[in-house]
């Protein structure tokens, strides 16, 4: 099949950037989207031109490294699919595809379609953990977890941190990501003790990183390749609100 690509080319964070047009006369429908870009890049290298920079790692849809916007859809128009798992058979002959990086103040462009998503890592650092005294291995059933809670927690934990929610949100909010991280720990007994401070710290960090707020549009959930739902944002709000009311400063520093 024949495709025309209009790809956002930007030398570095300071460059203004522009679209460049590439004609691909023979795209195999069995290729993944990223394989198609690999082919294009080989061609560009052969011609002595700069290849298109894009993020990718596992190419199995589980690492969260890849992602850009195809024709206004983060990760492309196929639901529940990362762009590395998106196959060219979903497009038709003669189509023009416009590729842009995920755009947000918190996601500076490194080059072309590659962006810096370390803001998400810093949100996780602010509270996406459980503090456990590591000791000998415990009996597997010593802490009981309800089936529904464990399922819901797993749904939240399926977030791969790709940032498509931010890309899709008209407010460039990472609420779905943050809500997912807060929920997957908060739903389990191991995460319960730190549930409210976790929400306080992660929501605060989320704002500090320059993400926008949630206005319950729902674009994030539509774009999420892992199908996270808006429920996790409600849970984040609930934990945050409860945490604001009940938060106590530590009375004494440890031990005692």
């Amino acid at each position: 099949m024949r495709l025309t690509l209009e790809i956002w080319r930007q030398k570095d964070a300071q460059d203004a950037g522009r679209f460049a047009r590439y004609d691909l006369p023979e795209v195999s429908e069995h290729m993944s989207f990223l394989e198609m870009l690999d082919v294009l890049n080989q061609e560009l290298i052969g011609k002595g031109e700069e290849p298109v920079a894009f993020d990718s790692d596992c190419r199995e849809g589980i690492c969260g490294m890849c992602g850009f916007v195809v024709n206004g859809y983060p990760h492309g128009p196929q639901p529940l699919t990362t762009v590395c798992q998106l196959h060219m058979r979903h497009f038709h002959d003669g189509e023009t595809l416009r590729l842009e990086p995920f755009r947000a103040k918190a996601f500076p462009v490194i080059k072309d379609l590659a962006i810096d998503r370390s803001a998400l890592d810093r949100i996780v650092m602010a509270g996406g953990y459980v503090s456990i005294n590591a000791g000998g291995p415990r009996d597997a059933n010593s802490i009981l977890v309800g089936k529904k809670e464990s399922d819901l927690s797993m749904d939240a934990a399926s977030c791969i941190g790709c940032g498509a929610c931010v890309a899709a949100c008209p407010n460039a909010s990472a609420s779905l990501f943050t809500g997912g991280k807060i929920s997957h720990l908060g739903l389990l007994p191991q995460g319960e003790p730190e549930r409210k401070t976790r929400a306080l710290n992660m929501v605060t960090r989320h704002s500090d990183e320059g993400f926008g707020g949630c206005t319950v549009i729902g674009a994030c959930a539509e774009a999420c390749p892992k199908g996270l739902k808006l429920d996790f944002i409600a849970r984040m709000n609930k934990d945050y609100l409860a945490g604001t009311v009940t938060f106590r400063e530590e009375a004494a520093g440890g031990g005692g």
Partner: peptide
């Protein structure tokens, strides 16, 4: 204030408008 903050959160707009499922009222 929330609206202003949201605008700041995406200083560079998309050149191709996002395919958004937003309802007219929410937008």
């Amino acid at each position: 204030q929330l609206w202003l903050r949201s605008r700041e959160a995406r200083p560079q707009p998309y050149r191709v408008p996002l395919a958004n499922p937003a309802t007219p009222s929410s937008k």
